[in-house]
Nucleic acid binder design. Structure first.
Lengths: 258, 258
DNA sequence: TCTTTAATTG
DNA sequence: CAATTAAAGA
């Protein structure tokens, strides 16, 4: 059985906001290490990987591996019924077809206990080959900045060319009506505080669909920083790390620079 | 003739926000006691009853009973032209087909006086039998909490079963994808302050359409508390009381617990 | 009835 | 500014 107590429902709410538009159904793989979700997006272009470490929970118990097949739309609805700072407990029995979510208000004299039961489903787990790559370039930047850049450029064109070089990281979008080009210089510092960092073995230039990058950026609420990892002709890895785990996206580059 | 001076236009604005989606046209019955509106909602399922006591007005005069047939959409538009803290005066002559609304700014050096005239209409008054019941159970709770509960549960299903017992009050909704269940314990206290109270002669269990309860909850801006009164097989009474009157909703229970 | 658009509210 | 929700048209 699974019993996982999360001190803030907000984390789950944000995770689902980030994932639900990309994936409609997915298995939450629960085991003693924690809870993991891995799924291709609905059009099988991007891959999402979420990990919540057991140690991040207020209480966590999972005797044996348990795949919980969840409709993310339903789970989103159920999570809408939780306040951000509610204590949220997930429970499921072995071979259960029900996931139970309990919300307790944090106030000292809690008078309200809400319990929701959600139907689970059997989902054929995609066999997902998560590439385990040594990347040629790694860029860490404020997630808000990445959000802003991909949103801005998505107004102009369909795709963005990302160029990592000694110069820094450059985002280029060529649109019908206008072209955009944003350069973030390496080791840029603001107010004496390092805002980002670039590590690079060799220069990398790749082109991606902006639609997906905009979607990935919904995870900005989960972490102040985002890490972009790239090698030529290999899927981009966009990673948001937070206290109790991470959410990662993989996106294949477009062939040829259009 | 009618002349009614209200020290805050906000009250009328909020009342109309609460009612306008339920009822499109209604008679404002004015007499020496005050102003009353009673109407079935457009689909003749729920009943709304608004009362503004004469004593609650800054000045009130109504020589003889006067039914003012109002299109609530039009009145809402006219009220949008008032600031919340404007002094608002309603005037209508006997047999008038015009309602005049005057808004005066409250500032010491009032420099703005706005006057609007709205066409009235003849409305056949529904004969409304307002049930005058001794209820088996009465529950008072923060209106914001009631709002939250019915909104949450409306995400899951069409209807809610309300159970009042020694345990407290429980709201249960069974939906396609998930079930929800919220218990508020009797006489729960928070920070030493009583948040709600339950009085009960016998346990009551009734099922209602959530759509209507969500609609009723728009009155939350009028009062911090809401009172739910129930007896088996009798319409639920949802009552919001404020300084100068009240707004009450009656809703028939669904037959059989589905 | 379902989709698209407009208006409203946080 | 964005997201949700009510209204309108297909």
């Amino acid at each position: 059985m699974l019993e996982a107590k999360l001190s803030e429902a907000a984390l789950l709410k944000r995770l689902l906001d980030a994932v639900k538009e990309l994936v409609s159904d997915a298995n939450f793989e629960c085991n003693e290490e924690g809870i993991q979700l891995q799924a291709m997006d609905n059009s099988h272009v991007a891959l999402v990987s979420v990990k919540l470490y057991a140690s991040g929970f207020k209480r966590y118990r999972c005797d044996r591996p348990l795949p919980l097949g969840v409709n993310l739309g339903s789970l989103t609805k159920v999570l809408k019924c939780a306040k951000d700072d509610d204590i949220c407990t997930l429970k499921a029995g072995d071979d259960a077809d029900i996931l139970s979510l309990t919300y307790e208000a944090k106030s000292a004299y809690a008078d309200r206990i809400a319990e929701y039961e959600m139907k689970l489903m059997d989902i054929d787990a995609d066999q997902l080959g998560i590439p385990d790559t040594d990347y040629d370039a790694s860029v860490t930047m404020p997630s808000s900045e990445f959000l802003r850049i991909v949103r801005d450029l998505s107004l102009l064109g369909e795709s963005v060319r990302i160029e990592v070089s000694k110069e820094g990281i450059r985002f280029v979008s060529d649109g019908e009506a206008a072209n955009g080009n944003i350069l973030i210089k390496q080791n840029a510092e603001a107010s004496g505080k390092k805002k980002g960092s670039i590590e690079m073995n060799s220069a990398v230039t790749l082109t991606f669909s902006l639609k997906y990058l905009v979607n990935f950026s919904k995870s900005s609420s989960l972490s102040k920083k985002v890490q972009l990892m790239m090698s030529n002709d290999v899927p981009l890895l966009v990673s948001y790390a937070f206290n109790q785990g991470h959410i990662r996206y993989y996106l294949a580059p477009k062939i040829g620079d259009d």
